[in-house]
Each structure stands twice: as C-alpha cells, then as structure tokens.
Design a binder for these strands. Sequence first.
RNA 1: CGGGGAGUAGCUCAGCCUGGUAGAGCACCACGUUCGGGACGUGGGGGCCGGAGGUUCAAAUCCUCUCUCCCCGACCA
Length: 462
Amino acid sequence: MRERHCLELPPVAARGDGSGDAGPGMRLTEYFLPTLKETPSEAQIVSHRLMLRAGMIHQAAAGVYSWLPLGFRVLKKVEQIVREEQDAAGAQELLMPTIQSADLWRESGRYEDYGKEMLRIRDRHDREMLYGPTNEELIADIFRTHIKSYRNLPKLLYHIQWKFRDEVRPRFGVMRGREFLMKDTYSFDVDYAGARRSYNKMFIAYLKTFARLGLKTIPMKAETGPIGGDLSHEFIILADTGESRVFCHKDLLAFDVLGTEVDYAADLQPMVDQWTSLYAATDDMHDAAEEKALGDRLVTARGIEVGHIFYFGTKYSKPMNATVTTVEGGSVPVEMGSYGIGVSRLVGAIIEAFHDDKGIIWPEPVAPFNVGLVNLRPDDRACAEAGDSLYRRLRRAGVEVLYDDRDERAGAKFADMELIGLPWQVVVGPRGVKAGTAELKRRATGGSEELSLDAVIDRLAG
RNA sequence: CGGGGAGUAGCUCAGCCUGGUAGAGCACCACGUUCGGGACGUGGGGGCCGGAGGUUCAAAUCCUCUCUCCCCGACCA
C-alpha cells in the first residue's frame, strides 16, 4: 500500500456526536433519522416503503431521491465493497463528469439514437449538453487521446458516478429511479482474446461483489444485440419479492465464490465455464424444453437484475477512431467491453432480499450500524450508566453503534430498531441492570439472550 | 408513449355529489401522570384546500386550463 499523505480526518460517523468518545457511533437524540409510523401512500414495493419509513431517503422529484444519513451510510458501504472488488480485479478508478457535451455523442451516432431517455440541456452559450446516461463516449475519448499502443493494454477503467435516464415511468423507489448511482467499468484490449480475459475478470469480480453483499447471485445469458457472441450476462440476485421470474439449475444455488481465492492473473475461463455451464434464464429467455429436461433439478425463483456486463468490440472505438498500433505496426480499433453495477439500486435490492413484516434485516457488511443499543430508561440513573458505558466501550472497540438514548416508550424504540434492521440489538433496561445484565438480540432470528455487560462487549467486539 | 387514479396540516385521510367561518387520527410544543413492545390527561401551535382563470352575494366544493405525483401496460442498471 502507498504511504498516506492526506490529512487524517476522524471517521465520518464520529463527527457530530458531542460525547467526546472515540469510535464510530451516534446517539439517536442527535442523529437525523426521521422514521415514519405510517406508510407514505406513493410507495408500492417493500423496499421503497421501508426506505421511506426507515428515514433513508427523501423523494425530490419523480425517480429522484435525496439520501438521508442512514441511507447514505448504506449506499457508501455498498459502493465501497463494489470498489474493493473492482480494485482487486485490477480495474483502476477514475471519475468522469455527469454533464457531457453533445459533440462526443454525435461522433458515436448516439446523440440522435438515444431518444428522450437522455436529458438534454443547453448552457448559457446555447451549447448542447446532456446529463450522462452512460459513459462509453467519454471513456473512449480519454482512451484515444492518451493510449496509442498495444503495449499499454489491457486496461480496465471504472468510475462510480451518478447517471440520469429520463425514464417514462420511474417506479419502485431507488430500484428504478431516473437518477441513480452506477459503477461502470470499461475494458480495452487489442484483440478478442484479450477482451474475453477482461470480460472474465469482471464476471468473477461481480460474483465476489454480490456474495460479499450477502446476496445469492445467478449470472444469466443476456441478449447480445448486434454484436453477437456469448459475451453478455445479466447478474440477477434472488429475492422473493423480485420483479421478474427466473429459472435455473438448482446446483447453481450451491456455488460459493466467497471461499475461493481468485488469482486474476490466471486463466479464469474454467471458473467462468463452471458458472455458465448450468441452465439459467430469465422469464423472457426461458426455454420450456430445458425446463422439461431438468425436471426437479429446476428451481423457479424471483430475482432483480443488479449488474450487466457485455463485450461490444469496436462499436464505439471505430466511429470515434480509438485505435492502437499492433505488434506488426498496423493500427486497429480497440476492443471494448462495459460492465455496470447499479449501486443505488442494490440498496433497494438488498432490502427486497432481506426484510420481514417489521422492517429491514441488514446483512452485516452493509448495515448502517452493526449494533443498535437501546436504553429503555435513559432517565433512570442505573440504566443511563449501564447504557452510556456500553456505548463508550463498544465505540472504543471500533463497533459501529447507534445508541437509542431517546426519552420514548419501549415499544416505540423496539419498533424503530426492528424497522431500521441493525444486525444486533443490545437492550438495557431496569430489569436487567439490577442483575448486571443486558439483552443481546439478533435481528435476523429474533433470538436473544441475557448476558453480563462484559460478555456483551466480548461478543460484539470479538 | 397509451390507459387509469390522486393532489386538503409533517404523515394517513375525511369533507366535494347537494357552494355558506376547514376537520379527525398520528406527529409537534408545554405541564402532569406514566414507563420491557408505537401510553394517558389538560392546554397549545400548524393549512391561501397544487397553481391560474372563470361562474356566484359567496368556491376546498361547480366549470376551464395548467403543474405535480402515483398506478397498469410497452422500455430499462
């Protein structure tokens, strides 16, 4: 790792808390968490309802949302996991702007083709601009300016940036917004074989990414459009309330990528083959003959598309003149591919996959806080001491903790805690404090146990 | 882009048909009683009824136009 020259800032979570304690935490009396008891009438699907009720987002316009502190924390965690897996696969992060010039899009021919989905803007000089729905043109322009030789290939470049697509009908909250946060990677190779290697890297990186988020993912062959070939896959995560029906071989569900150490420099084709050899299809691509052949090995489920990767060859490099010199000294348009993950959409998708009738059940890697510390009686001296002490010790141990020190009824606190779905709850009340214990509760199972305060720390900090 | 629905308090909604001083529950503020699963009492604050025209002595209510949001379908990360 490189040495750090940057200013050391306190962790984001630690700011704004006047307690003076070190460590990642927040007191609910100070936190901006506008939860709702009633469901706003506009929300239809469960993730949208829960995100509004849990105070994660606030609608700004149709399909456009502000991310409130709790939702923002989750978004950042998802983003960070996506980033880490891109970096691990050898992709390099950069940042392209949201606003683009129409000129580049004229070069590729897409300015006319894209239609009303593209938000077009004019600046004060009446120049035609647009809010980027994707970035192939921009990245191709960067590439052609700076890379000229096969010797500088391959390259995998990505950014995580807001996009805007003026959907006719945005819906499902952040799952189908008009403005959305997307990670898009672009690959550059001198030939098809190289493009395939890049494709495979992203394929595996995607499996890793979604697995780390706690999701079951199934890659499915997707329409390849005019390019043809077999290099296009959608990544579908399974969720009971998912938007589309999917079919697959049941053995796919047992595949585990988390335990596998991946060497991105090695040949990844065998691993990709393993994942693509078994049948998997979305509703519209489903083959009845396959269904029959599989019999009881076929699984029918519901899913949500959270990623899409595809190879498109010279579709943009040719018209935009992004070429490289070859070993032989000739010049060829660079082979490209693009690889997207809907980061903001994933937040909704994760909720679709993990919730119950009381609220969200966050997988630990993306939970906004790991522990919700509930003080049932902050006005009671013994409770306040026990609660404050636990809060301090958990933070010192580096545990992200949200401390409910509000003067509210027990029921309201429990309901809010279930709603925002932190993986662990620690309940401090007069009953336990007398015996020197607190209750440790797991959100996912509802199971709980009475432990001494020390045992609670050991368990959560361990 | 076709078809439907809705805009009244922060949220959920009633009132509109049949014009006559704008309501409820929750939320909010104060005080008191409560306190291990969304308490209770008393008092209080808050809305040009989405906007613009029109009809009328009088419009949340009737008429016209417009904006916004939501739902179903076709499309998409």
